[in-house]
């Protein structure tokens, strides 16, 4: 499962905001922290706002804050807001033996990826972010 840029920006923004729910950073501050496009991120944040995951705080000192439930919200919940249902890849034209076989393998990979994204909550991700990296 290859994620689009908007999806990756959304995951980064939600994790950034959920890590410190009291903070209200602007889209520009989040973008600069992670080296991503502020213009693109602003659009992503609007979508997250409509989904009730973040809230836009107006006025001086305003910005965005996380308002979701980190124990319930999964990576897949966020991904599903931005990723269209996957279409069959051009190489896997239905009706041909090669196409059908390739599609089965690609679907197997996608099902594993989807199960992984469905099983990881933001709360688990926040623990992972704090855990030391083992090599």
């Amino acid at each position: 499962m290859k994620l689009q840029k908007a999806t990756l920006f959304a995951l980064i923004a939600v994790l950034d905001l959920a890590a410190d729910p009291q903070a209200q950073p602007s889209a520009l501050e989040i973008a600069e922290r992670h080296g991503i496009s502020a213009h693109h991120l602003a659009k992503v944040l609007r979508t997250l706002g409509r989904a009730g995951i973040v809230d836009a705080v107006r006025g001086v000192g305003g910005g965005y804050r996380f308002i979701g439930n980190p124990k319930r919200l999964t990576l897949m919940d966020i991904i599903a807001l931005f990723e269209p249902p996957r279409a069959a890849p051009p190489a896997a034209r239905p009706g041909t033996g090669a196409g059908e076989a390739l599609l089965r393998v690609l679907n197997e990979i996608d099902e594993h990826a989807a199960a992984t994204f469905r099983s990881i909550t933001l709360s688990t991700m926040l623990k992972l972010m704090r855990a030391p990296v083992r090599t």
Binding site: T74, E111, H112, A115, T116, R118, S119, I120, T121, S123, T124, K127, L128, A131
Partner: peptide, 18 residues
């Protein structure tokens, strides 16, 4: 089972990875 999201999520929350 990979569709057992509840228990999969529980083990993930304990720090388990693939």
């Amino acid at each position: 089972a990979r569709d057992n999201t509840l228990i999969l999520s529980f083990f993930r929350s304990q720090g388990m990875m693939a």
